[in-house]
Design a protein around this nucleic acid. Structure first.
Lengths: 333, 333
DNA sequence: CTGAAAGCGCTAACAG
DNA sequence: CTGTTAGCGCTTTCAG
């Protein structure tokens, strides 16, 4: 619904449309005089540039597409917020898609987003359909896959960390505290490949520490406090003398802590608890939660930086950034 | 970075470009034979339509712009997720902006988003700069302002509820339980106009119930569990014999509950607590949290419905939808 | 430093 | 049902 066009601005400013266009992109390249009258005309007319037309003509739009599994998830919300503000500062808009952990959905979303000829794409994880990888490779734009690092080579660039290492760190921490009967509880382990990787890392480390085959329990719904309360009951039935529990997510851990309190199980005395995420409440809950911090914000910032750099000069620097993780030890372990 | 164009598809399918275009928009309007060869050509070439060009030509793009104060906030994350999936189902993409509660930022964001000639815009709240209102009115597209209903007339349509009523409901509930020394604690009350409205509704209802001028305390940072722990200390200093506390948000309420537990203040015996949001943990925490549920998801769905209807036929139905609120009574009060 | 001209890839009448 | 014909509003050489 374009009202005022560049041509009208040009008429009013008594210059040609191309001068207006130039002024908009490089004000310094236009004489002070012309610049003055153009900016007056813009203000008087309330001109808003039509980026659709601009994008077509320049064959490069200042949008970047982002696809995450779930914007409801605090991790991705944080990352998306960081991406959004970093990109907005450089004049890029963010086109958002939510795949709900469905691979086919992701492919469809990426296809439509690509239709907008974005300047770059940001995806979550390294696992995509072959078709998706092909489309993306053919797009010839910077692509960042975030929140995961593994053997799988990224399509283009990657910013994230190793999830198996997270699980291993948690198991090692508990084993180091003398805990011997450990378990892992998670939600949506079949859809959330990264949570599943944390569980695998946990299992491997348990074996390495001579703890045998520790149980891994799954809740089919989304990771939530409620899932944690349910999972605690299940794991106790399976392993009544449990003394250490690793959770796929801080929300689940909080649910576990509440349920322990309800059942008179002392944390950490009877059972130590480790979470993942270092969400806002981790330092305030009772007992405060030992957890592993991934920094979704850092991932967002680094992703934006990589893309903006690549867009400036197409020199491709390092393509994989490991944002690492930090064990935050608190009272629950 | 467009590779394959519609013209190439047309050549390969031995038809004209406009037939391809027609097929893409209304497959039924094309002969089965032509449709066949077009769809084969598309698949063989890996054609991805360029919506930028399409948007320019049709002067209407299938994007809708959404601007929220903070995507990190669970309320808005939920609404955005709902909007995203409703719109995606109808083939619309979502252009997301995050204003961080800064009015100037919102204006800039809306301006850039409008540059993409979106089919509709979704904003948060009814409070916008005059310039913003003017831009939006001139855009001639459906506009929905969500999460707030008040005397202020919406620019076009509105979906939300009354925040003063939320505060009043909470105060009335506590007064009905015989609580006499109430207070309200909130975060970012200067930026978050809707939280401030809840505080005002609370104050008015307290007065109406003969409870006098109850204190309202503010935390400058974002609403969080930590803010709640800090605010409880402050409010106790101000009102040592406090017996009922209304929180601007469930996260704050959870922090309050933790801090009470730490200080040996019994909830609800010594002090009842009411939250807002009915976030995931409200039913699971100890004690479970009495709260007021606004349903961000319903707001998202209704907003999408309104816009899609308006886009189909420009008949303008009811322009204001009150999604109401529900008091969810649990143990904390 | 400024303007004229030629599209970007697609849609939308309008004829056939 | 299909093809032809004009642009959508802007950017971008390339002359002046």
């Amino acid at each position: 619904m374009q009202r005022v066009t560049m041509t009208e601005v040009a008429q009013r400013a008594q210059v040609s449309p191309s001068t207006v266009s130039l002024y908009l992109r490089r004000p310094a390249a236009v004489s002070a005089e012309a610049g003055q009258s153009i900016s007056h005309a813009i203000a008087a007319l309330g001109y808003v540039p039509n980026l659709v037309a601009g994008g077509l003509a320049a064959a490069s739009s200042r949008v970047v597409g982002i696809v995450v599994p779930s914007i409801r998830n605090a991790f991705f919300a944080e990352t998306v917020a960081a991406l959004q503000s970093e990109f907005a500062a450089e004049g890029f808009q963010v086109l958002l898609g939510n795949s709900d952990y469905v691979p086919g959905q992701e492919e469809a979303l990426i296809r439509t987003t690509l239709s907008w000829a974005p300047a770059a794409m940001v995806l979550t994880g390294l696992d995509h359909t072959p078709q998706t990888r092909r489309m993306l490779q053919g797009a010839g734009i910077p692509i960042v896959e975030m929140w995961e690092l593994s053997q799988t080579a990224p399509i283009d660039m990657a910013v994230g960390f190793s999830h198996p290492q997270i699980g291993a760190t948690a198991a090692r921490h508990l084993a180091g505290k003398g805990r011997r009967r450990l378990a892992f509880v998670g939600a949506r382990l079949h859809e959330d490949r990264r949570a599943a990787q944390r569980a695998e890392g946990f299992l491997a480390e348990c074996r390495a520490n001579g703890l045998g085959e520790c149980p891994v329990l799954n809740h089919p719904g989304p990771a939530s406090v409620e899932a944690g309360t349910i999972l605690l009951g299940q794991v106790r039935r399976r392993l009544p003398d449990l003394d250490g529990l690793v959770c796929s997510n801080d929300l689940v851990a909080l649910g576990v802590i509440f349920e322990c309190q309800r059942r008179g199980i002392l944390v950490p005395e009877d059972c130590a608890v480790v979470g993942f995420g270092d969400l806002g409440f981790a330092g305030s809950c009772i007992p405060s939660l030992t957890t592993i911090r991934p920094s979704g914000e850092l991932i967002g910032r680094e992703t934006a930086r990589l893309i903006l750099e690549r867009l400036r000069k197409d020199a491709s620097g390092p393509v994989v950034i490991d944002t690492g993780h930090a064990l935050v030890e608190r009272r629950s372990s």
